[in-house]
Nucleic acid binder design. Structure first.
Lengths: 344, 344
DNA sequence: AAGAGCTAAGTTACCCGTAACGCAATTGAA
DNA sequence: TTCAATTGCGTTACGGGTAACTTAGCTCTT
């Protein structure tokens, strides 16, 4: 765009040093505020930095020091799901305020994409990785161990993490909901979710849910797993399918709140009253819930806090502070009013 | 974690080469598939690559070639707003499928944070930057020009972009909505949005909206700009405030759909009927709209496509293909049913 | 007055790949 | 057979910083 500096058209430290009449090393010391220079030298160097518009090349720093960068790789399944967007926001805000950068990787819920992304991102010498989920391909784990890199696994609580883990017990959150629904009088219950090629948090919730329902004397009469995204409309038509094949359900548990809202709308569109004709329960406690007249029966998770906690653990590890390997961020069952009221 | 390789505990190309009994250069050629080696050599090198778990150091590659990395910096105001999450998803999916990485920066709608992030991310020698919005601090623009880097400005259509731009005409989208609402018989209209320290897309929409309403014989009786986030609950209580001071409004236009939903809920909670007692219009066409019985009057924007288009423009520029400097992604007014029906 | 101790620099080597060039051995054509 | 072209691989230099070491000049002490 303007005058050539070098091949790359960028001002290097050498040029600043030459302009200031000092050596590279002195200029480097000034820029790092390391000391060992006079005030006069400092002023001259800084003046030239401004004049030439010098921007340091952090690649070279990392390269020279043979140390890790300030990058933190963050893998997220997708951002269409509001909850993951919030987790990512929590992570990036915290990392950013400590001078670190988020390198994003969307895996679309597949281990293969995660693996490809891990391979790429590792080649940039990141300071650490934050991965969603506790399941990774064998090659992924091999690469992570081989790189000897710090890893925080989020979302699922993982009692034997690769390195560190922060999340919640999805099994328990499903279990609690199962017991809660049976406690509210439901016995014949259905499930609507989406299909996945590998175990994940949603399937863990369903496991816990089924166990609790069966223990308490209810039955999960039908589980519908759609080949679709876990969003509003699949919740809508999934409910239609479920009720077409199993019309006598008393209550439906959904993979998440978005699907539950879809189901709620389907039921209402067919003239069913909630919760008199059918109960609805979701997971995740979407923000929109806060302003709706009828609160969704759901499980609240502190998503932003989860992201921040993950970033904090990574930052602590990077500065060699002691970090507990596992942190439980917890959850809270929201009784809501899309299921029948408790008996007085 | 395991045996020391060098200071960094990482396997370098030299070690692979030594193990394979060839020079670094030959190993490098094999890994890049550049040719100039025998099949036997290739096999030996690749075997050692696998055996040692070698991962290339892309930092060194960039550094050696004195060229740009495969990083693309992407600045986004926040991810609490679903529409930006979708834009980011579109960007990252497209970039990822072409071997590029997204380095995220959340600016929280402030130019100062954007500036700080630009400075940091530039020091990592990114291939390019994708920035949300057309407004940047002077120092930001100076740094961008100085770095001679490719930039795509998204969101606002910008007829004289720094480099490239893709988005929509927010003024027009506000203008169209203004004319539409007056066409539906509304004259006394209010606005609820949030306050910003600098001009942005939302304020541009409001400008267009006001102009259209006034041109068509209506008035924007009151504009309420909250010091809060543009989310559901501020829409709720903002509507309460607005109606407390100006109870005779016939219709309210909101900064976005989230706030509009908040307003809708507030009105309904006070027993007002929509659209008989008051009209509601938003912007952005949130996904949840698709399953609600009453479609929000709004403006649809192809968010995912916008993100993909931004990534495509960047990728085209990086491979020296011709790229139009400006691309209009368009929008579509959704009449919805939260405003009175058209006269027959 | 001479050495100890400090300050404010400069010098050298190195990080890990790749561009550019060099060169020996083999192949092919005249 | 002889020379040119090609193949296969090695050598050298380099990029932008920084660690580690060196050095010149000054101050202070005894």
């Amino acid at each position: 765009m303007n005058e050539k500096k070098n091949k790359n058209n960028k001002v290097s430290l050498s040029e600043v040093a030459r302009a200031a009449g000092v050596s590279k090393m002195t200029a480097s010391r000034v820029l790092r505020g390391e000391g060992g220079y006079s005030e006069k030298t400092r002023a001259t160097v800084m003046e030239k930095v401004d004049a030439l518009g010098y921007l340091p090349n952090r690649l070279a720093t990392v390269f020279a020091g043979d140390k890790a960068s300030t990058f933190v790789g963050v893998s997220i399944p997708d951002l269409g799901n509001e909850v993951f967007a919030q987790v990512l926001e929590g992570i990036d805000r915290k990392l950013g305020s400590f001078g670190h950068q988020t390198v994003l990787g969307l895996t679309q819920h597949t281990l293969a994409q995660e693996e490809a992304w891990i391979q790429t991102v590792l080649s940039w010498q990141p300071a650490g990785l934050i991965l969603t989920g506790r399941y990774h391909s064998n090659r992924s784990m091999e690469m992570l161990l081989n790189a000897g890199i710090h890893v925080v696994e989020i979302w699922d609580l993982n009692s034997s993490p690769l390195d560190m883990s922060v999340g919640l017990n999805h099994f328990d959150s499903g279990f609690d909901m199962g017991r809660f629904l049976v406690g509210r009088g439901y016995r014949h219950i259905g499930y609507v979710g989406t299909w996945h090629d590998a175990a994940n948090a949603a399937s863990t919730r369903l496991d816990g849910f089924c166990k609790a329902v069966e223990q308490s004397g209810g039955t999960v009469a039908r589980q519908l797993c759609l080949h679709d995204t876990a969003t509003y409309y699949p919740g809508y038509y999934g409910t239609e399918q479920l009720l077409a094949s199993t019309p006598d359900l008393e209550c439906i548990y959904y993979q998440n709140d978005a699907m539950a809202f879809g189901g709620l709308q389907f039921c209402q569109s067919r003239g069913m009253r909630i919760p008199d004709d059918i109960g609805i329960a979701g997971w995740g406690d979407l923000p929109i819930t806060a302003i709706l007249p009828r609160r969704m029966t759901s499980v609240h998770v502190p998503h932003l806090k989860l992201g921040q906690a993950a970033a904090e653990m990574m930052l602590a590890r990077l500065s060699n502070e002691p970090v507990p390997a596992v942190r439980d961020i917890g959850f809270r069952l929201i009784p809501g009013s899309t299921v029948s009221a408790a008996d007085p």
